[in-house]
Write a protein that binds this DNA or RNA. Structure first.
Lengths: 333, 333
DNA sequence: TGGCGACATACAATCGATTGCACGCACACG
DNA sequence: CGTGTGCGTGCAATCGATTGTATGTCGCCA
């Protein structure tokens, strides 16, 4: 006969577990589990004893064990290009709020454009690490087909080409058209566009909206990289054009801020000599000099809608943008 | 005799597990586990068969099960006041980089100043959800004493009063003194200070550094809330003082940006009429008009150092700040 | 007083991995 | 030819929870 051997677990954590509660309350773990789950089968005095034991010890269930048994982790992973960008920050804030309210927590993966890293993070879906994936990257890592089909993946802010993924977005083309129309109504006839990087879906959509209003006679857009530096560089190129624009629609606020700086350096006054229009309405947009006229994307609501759609399994509604009028735009002289 | 009953697990996930690999390779799960762990006990042809099976199926270990058995989750939780703030964003970026390199992933909890929420998130340490906790909140939730003692908790950017917690910071008092000294050397004699909220540790440290240089004759600092709005309000109050300062040292860049705006609105030119000095060197500081002179905190390195200290269990080194000279400061006229 | 039903509680299997120990097999040596 | 040495592999316990089924208890009625 062999003695029962034990495979020693690593460094006993010593945390209170359900078994301890059971012992203190004088019941079995099953009963404790049911009591905590709110089952109506555990009542009266027994339930009271269990609750007392829980309070006394400060017990909280072990989420890892629970996750293993229930095959869900109550965690959502957000994948984004870079977290050091206030635009994403506020989306995450919304995600956090909604997730927390639903009893989920949020993992953040900043991929820095590295496909390898993206894939590694997305693998968490396989490994049981997370229940859902929110993509702010504008692309989807390989091997996520089944998960996507099961409604565990959702895109936010940017549609992903060639995928029928539920997506939380505004109508970017309409928003760009609205911005351009606004400038036109002010009396501008030469409206340039500082676009995002070529090949990007958002870039294409916003270029399309702008083009619809300015027509083919207008020159090509100048492409940037959604950064302040690239906005400044783009503006410098625009100012060198033979017929200088009187207004510039920028594909995001950061590039608009860069453009503003370049305009100032060139000795132009905004909005007297040049109108500048942004996109996103990040917090800083209200504090530039002059404050930026821009399109506001409801970023917190993006986050809320993403979680709601993910947890309910229903397709998210398309959200509305707002035109925020500030002082960086005016009629041309 | 009773038949073995099964307690049905929820919706069989159908993912490949170690057992599948074992079957395909014709060995037991223990051998697979050892092979994957890199044990030298599994060699030659057996190992080759296992590796082939893994490649063929695209198997990845289930982190939840592994976490349960090993009593560790390979996850680090970062607690911060609000994620919609570029200052924290870059710290998280650093945390992410270092964590990922060490095979850890990062959970982000934005507490919005809610103590309840902070405690709920911190509870993850008990529940096995995370292995370590990084606090950017400037305070520590209750009931973390043992964890702190075990080196699972570290503070970043802000020391936590009354706790001997390993902390990643610059010398804030020295930095404030350096900023004020810089202004004094430019020839300013009336240097005001827009401070953070009263009661905050950082506020106190920076006020102390400023005070050390300006002496007791200078008036009291004006308190703000680290936001652009509060910076603007504080500046407005300063401008109403009988002897208007010729330079203002702000406790962070956001308040400096607000101050800049208020100064402009009041018709003052910066730096000709008024010098403004910031703190942190957030990305936007280089793009204000004029660009902000400021103290740079090495935020990415904060993140790296925090992870290094957490994983190695060694106290982090104190990091160095840099004075970044830009155009918002000049000699008084 | 015996039997039946309703209700509360306990037992044990299960999630997917890790690991101490036992065991099998091959080879060598006495 | 029997036993010792050593290496590689398998068995089964374990992490902490959930849950289908069995069991126990009590009351009520005939």
């Amino acid at each position: 006969m062999t003695l029962p051997r034990k495979t020693e677990p690593p460094a006993a954590a010593g945390r209170t577990k359900m078994e301890d509660i059971a012992r203190i309350a004088g019941v079995s773990v099953s009963t404790v589990s049911r009591a905590l789950a709110g089952s109506s089968k555990v009542t009266g005095e027994t339930r009271a004893r269990i609750e007392a034991a829980v309070r006394q010890t400060g017990y909280v269930v072990n989420q890892v064990a629970q996750g293993l048994r229930l095959q869900r982790s109550r965690q959502i992973l957000v994948l984004l290009p870079t977290i050091a960008n206030p635009f994403f920050g506020e989306i995450i804030l919304g995600v956090e709020e909604a997730a927390q309210a639903a009893g989920y927590s949020v993992l953040v993966g900043s991929t820095e454009g590295d496909l390898e890293r993206e894939a590694a993070l997305a693998r968490q879906l396989h490994t049981g690490g997370v229940d859902g994936l929110i993509l702010l990257t504008g692309r989807i890592p390989d091997g996520l087909a089944d998960h996507a089909a099961r409604g565990q993946v959702i895109a936010v802010s940017e549609t992903i080409p060639g995928q029928h993924l539920p997506t939380v977005v505004i109508d970017n083309e309409e928003a760009a058209a609205a911005a351009t129309t606004y400038l036109r109504r002010l009396g501008h006839h030469n409206i340039a566009h500082i676009a995002g990087p070529e090949g990007n879906v958002l870039t294409a959509q916003r270029v399309r909206g702008w083009r619809r209003i300015v027509g083919d006679a207008a020159g090509p857009p100048v492409f940037g990289a959604f950064t302040m530096d690239s906005g400044a560089a783009a503006m410098t190129r625009l100012l060198a054009r033979p017929n200088r624009p009187t207004a510039v629609f920028c594909a995001n606020d950061e590039m608009a801020i860069g453009a503003l700086k370049a305009a100032h350096l060139a000795g132009l006054r905004v909005p007297e000599d040049l109108s500048i229009f942004g996109f996103d309405d990040i917090t800083f947009a209200a504090f530039t000099d002059p404050p930026l006229t821009t399109i506001r994307q409801p970023r917190r609501e993006f986050g809320h809608a993403a979680i709601a759609a993910l947890l309910a399994g229903t397709p998210p509604p398309r959200l509305a943008f707002t035109l925020v009028e500030r002082a960086s735009t005016a009629a041309p002289r």
